[in-house]
Amino acid sequence: MSMERRPGAVRSEKSRLAILSAASRQFAEKGYDHLTIEGIAAEAGVGKQTIYRWWGTKTALVAECLVEGMLIPVPLRPQGSGDLRADVEAWVRSIVDFIPGNESLMRSLIIAAAEDPDVATTMNERLGILPTNDDDGALPMELVEAVLGAIIVRSLRRGTFDEGFAERLVAVLLPDTVA
C-alpha cells in the first residue's frame, strides 16, 4: 500500500477507481473471506496482475478501500460536542455497531497493519483515527489507543459487543466524568 511508484505501467486513476469500486461492492456483497482478486479484476475490467502490482495483497487493497471511505460508514474519529463522555460513548457505539458481519475485515485489517508497515502508516495517516499534535481539541492519544485496544482485543478473541459495552468501557476509562 506504499504510495511510492512501483515498477510497471503508470497507474491509471480510472482503473484504480474501478478496482476500488469493484472491491468495495464485492466486499459488501460477499464479505472479506469470499472476496477474490480474480473476481475484482473481472468486474473492474483489468488483469489480476495489475491489482497485484498496485496492491501486494487482498488485505492491502481492502485497506485502501477503507482509507478511501468506501467500506465503513462510521466516523472513525470521535465527534467533538464538548461532552467528552457522550462523544466517546457515541464513537465506541458507532464502531461496535459496525462490527457484526464485518468481523473478518476487522481482524484482517489488524493483522495487515501489524505485518505491513506501509499499511499501518497509511491507515494512521489517511484515516485520521489517531490524534496528532496539530489537532485542536483531540482526545488524548492514550484514551484513543485504550478504546481501540479494547475493541481490537475483543475482536481478536471473537468476543461479542453487547448493548452496554460502550458505556461500561467509557466508565472504566473516564471514571471521574459525570454520567
Rank of each mutant, 00 (worst) to 15 (best):
A166C: 03
D176M: 12
A113M: 10
L109H: 03
T160L: 11
I99E: 01
G149Y: 09
L173A: 05
A150T: 08
E163M: 09
D162E: 14
R154E: 11
E103A: 11
S108K: 07
E103S: 08
M123Q: 11
D176T: 15
T160N: 12
A113V: 05
R158Q: 13
D136E: 13
P117A: 10
S104T: 15
D118N: 15
A146M: 05
D97W: 09
F98H: 14
A166L: 06
A150R: 04
A166R: 06
A171R: 15
G101E: 02
A112T: 06
D134S: 12
F98N: 08
P117L: 06
E125C: 06
A114R: 14
L143P: 00
I151W: 00
L174N: 04
L130W: 07
L109S: 03
P100G: 01
G137K: 01
L148P: 05
S104K: 12
V170Y: 02
N102C: 06
I110C: 04
L105P: 03
G159D: 11
G164D: 15
A112G: 15
P117Y: 09
I110G: 02
L148E: 12
G128K: 01
G164K: 14
L143T: 14
I152S: 12
F165Q: 04
R154A: 10
G164N: 15
G128I: 14
V119M: 05
M106V: 15
L174R: 12
I111C: 09
T132P: 04
P175C: 04
P140S: 09
T121E: 12
N102I: 07
L148W: 13
E115C: 13
L143C: 06
T121V: 10
D116Y: 08
A146E: 07
V172C: 09
L174T: 07
L143D: 02
L148Y: 10
V147K: 01
G101Y: 06
V96G: 00
L139E: 09
F161L: 05
N124H: 14
T122R: 15
A114N: 11
T122A: 11
E125F: 07
E163A: 14
E142P: 01
A138S: 13
A112L: 08
A114S: 13
V147F: 01
L105C: 04
R154Q: 13
G101W: 05
P100S: 05
R154K: 13
D118G: 10
P175L: 06
S108G: 08
M106R: 05
P131D: 05
R168I: 09
A171W: 02
G101P: 00
